[in-house]
């Protein structure tokens, strides 16, 4: 090929690649607009006040009611439970890997955690039914143990790899000089970890927690399989709950196209979208702050 042909070809390819870039951006932007558009259609029929404050989600009843509160409380309950279980375990494990484990142990633990992250959520949900459920049922005398606690336990397992990986990055990012200064004044390894390393890595750990929460809120299959999905307002950890994700999963399959109920599912999906977006943006903010702080 002569030079002119090559340079023309270069221009064509550049144009093609640029347009695929734009296509992708349009497609992904489409998700956002699709959600907003359908949610807007919903709010033309149901007042936002009723949606936000309603305590009943009974879209198929005779007097359809679209209150998001029971779903929101369910999602919150399960998420809080999962975080209570996962945060201490996650930070502890990350600290062990970054501060105590030798190179060989690290080379076993890190792939193990990646393996844990790779287990599909439907498999975790299945184990919720066959292991955690019967275990809880035996413990508290319920017939099947499908409740908020079960969901929280499973979600904590799913959030752990994210929390561990990001926390470990944060702990490793703390400059050695901080630790050396601490050893210099006579602190031991544990005191250094608690008093120096963890506080210095705090923004990074917060980011880890946020990203873990983001994953937990949006998880569908595990909660769908393990929490019982009762439509009533949630009654605490030992009762059955139905999260936003589970509601979408259950009802979308049966709902007729472009009815109020159909739009309602997009409305709760929009709420879910905004929640995960907020959590992820906060998480990203802390990741960046941590980086800036330590590269300065």
């Amino acid at each position: 090929m002569n030079i002119a042909a090559r340079e023309n070809f270069d221009k064509v390819v550049k144009l093609a690649i640029r347009s695929t870039g734009l296509i992708v951006i349009v497609l992904l932007g489409g998700i956002f607009f699709m959600l907003l558009y359908n949610a807007f259609a919903f709010f033309l029929k149901v007042s936002p006040m009723d949606f936000i404050t309603g305590t009943q989600w009974t879209p198929s009843g005779k007097l359809a009611s679209y209150g998001i509160l029971p779903l929101l409380v369910s999602t919150t309950l399960v998420t809080i439970g999962a975080m209570v279980l996962a945060i201490p375990l996650g930070i502890g494990t990350a600290a062990f890997i970054s501060e105590y484990a030798g190179k060989r142990l690290k080379n076993i633990l890190k792939p193990a955690i990646e393996m844990l992250a790779a287990v599909p959520s439907v498999a975790i949900g299945f184990l919720g039914i066959v292991i955690v459920g019967p275990f809880l049922a035996h413990l508290i005398g319920q017939p099947n143990g499908l409740n908020a606690l079960n969901g929280a336990i499973l979600l904590s397992v799913m959030a752990l790899p994210t929390i561990i990986t990001v926390t470990e990055d944060a702990l490793r990012g703390v400059p050695n000089s901080y630790k050396e200064a601490s050893y210099g004044v006579g602190a031991n390894k544990w005191q250094t970890l608690i008093k120096v390393t963890i506080p210095a890595a705090a923004p990074g750990i917060l980011a880890a927690v946020m990203l873990g929460i983001g994953r937990t809120i949006g998880e569908t299959m595990t909660v769908l399989m393990a929490t019982g999905n009762a439509q009533a307002f949630p009654h605490g950890f030992l009762g059955s709950v139905r999260t936003i994700t589970a509601t979408i999963a259950i009802e979308t399959g049966e709902v007729p196209y472009q009815t109020t109920h159909y739009f309602a599912l997009f409305a709760i999906a929009t709420v879910l979208f905004i929640m995960t977006l907020a959590v992820n943006i906060v998480g990203e903010y802390f990741v960046n702050r941590f980086r800036k702080y330590h590269s300065a």
Binding site: M34, G214, I248, A249, T252, F266, E284
Partner: peptide, 18 residues
């Protein structure tokens, strides 16, 4: 980056609608 944090069920809804 944030789209990779969007719950997969929302992609399901989008797929259904689109």
């Amino acid at each position: 980056r944030n789209l990779s944090g969007v719950p997969s069920i929302i992609y399901g809804l989008f797929g259904l609608a689109l």
